[in-house]
Simulated scan of single mutants.
Amino acid sequence: MTGTNDSTVVEMIAELAPIWLPGCVVDAEQRTVEVGWGRGALQMSAVVGVGEIVDRCLQLPQQRWPEQIEAWLRAVVAEGELATQEHRFGDVAERQRALLVQRGWSARTAGPVADALLPFGDHFEVVVFIRTGSELRRLTVVRRSMLGLGDPDVPSPVRLTLEEIADLEPQQHNGISVLSRDDDPLVSMAIVDRDNLLPQASLGAGVLIGVPRLSTVAYCPADAGQAHADSLARWVADSYRGAPDQCSPDLYWLQGDQMVQVPVTLATPPTAVLPAALKPQPRRTWLRHLFGR
């Protein structure tokens, strides 16, 4: 926005934050805000950087900044209260888990505080959660800092997750291989551990793969032909439709570290639009080559 910069937003935070949250302290030079929470004699506080809300405000008209700042500040306090509760369930660092979801899922569904996530190619992202009992709670950037989970010696949520799905074995369904476990959203992370769980992805042409559900990954050889590709497209579409843990209805060509989307028609039944490199090439005799037949 013309005429505005980071310092303008920080000045507004410093002016308004103590009104909404009495007792909070804004350090404009360090670009931080200290917020408190608790009940009775049990009072806690945390110092949080304001970079996230500054960036968000700079993308909006200035008249919308106050509502954004208030929502973010109140969400930060709620994150602090949640961080306090999570310690009651044991070592938070060891309870981290990661889910592979469609790219943009976090932006579409997140609240005022951004999720802790890792980009994963052009089509997916890895979002970090905390397992609390039977519940997976989304970990935010703010709460990760409050819990000290960004420190170098803290276990990786990706490693913890891959250890939990290392025993998955593919099941065969009419030429389609399926990695699946009921009610286990961690299965989608099999794509991240493709060297161990999807070794076929690094052989020859690789695999055509779908992640219709967080609990299901399906694939077949990429060069298996149109019929197999269409069967996979139908299987993925059927598995995705109405699933409580939907991930992606699309197909992808995974070869080593490269993943590209394979279009699927909206016809009934759907069919895969294979790239030329995966279509069978007819063998031509010398006579056909010479005479163009």
Rank of each mutant, 00 (worst) to 15 (best):
P185D: 06
L186V: 08
L186M: 10
V187F: 03
V187G: 01
V187M: 03
M189Y: 11
M189H: 10
R194V: 11
D195T: 11
L197I: 07
L197G: 06
L198C: 09
L198P: 13
Q200D: 09
A201I: 04
S202G: 14
L203F: 00
L203R: 12
G204W: 12
G204Q: 08
A205W: 08
A205Q: 12
G206P: 04
V207C: 03
V207S: 02
L208V: 01
I209F: 03
G210Q: 02
V211M: 03
V211T: 04
P212S: 02
P212H: 00
R213E: 06
R213D: 00
L214N: 03
L214S: 03
L214Q: 00
L214A: 07
S215Q: 10
S215K: 02
S215E: 07
S215I: 05
T216R: 05
T216Y: 01
V217F: 04
V217D: 02
A218G: 07
A218P: 02
A218V: 00
Y219E: 01
Y219Q: 07
C220L: 14
P221W: 12
P221K: 13
D223A: 09
A224W: 09
G225W: 00
G225E: 00
Q226M: 13
A229Y: 08
D230R: 08
S231N: 14
L232F: 08
R234E: 07
R234L: 15
R234K: 14
W235C: 02
V236D: 04
D238P: 00
R241Y: 09
R241I: 04
R241A: 13
G242W: 05
G242P: 02
P244C: 10
P244Y: 09
P244F: 10
P244T: 10
D245E: 15
D245P: 00
Q246Y: 05
C247W: 03
C247H: 02
S248K: 00
D250Q: 11
D250T: 11
L251P: 04
L251H: 01
Y252A: 03
Y252N: 00
W253V: 05
L254D: 00
L254H: 03
Q255D: 08
D257Y: 15
D257S: 15
Q258F: 14
V260I: 15
P263M: 13
V264C: 07
V264M: 08
V264F: 05
T265P: 08
T265F: 11
T265C: 08
L266Y: 12
L266M: 14
L266K: 12
P269A: 15
P269D: 12
T271C: 14
T271Y: 11
A272C: 12
A272W: 05
V273P: 04
L274A: 09
L274F: 10
A276M: 13
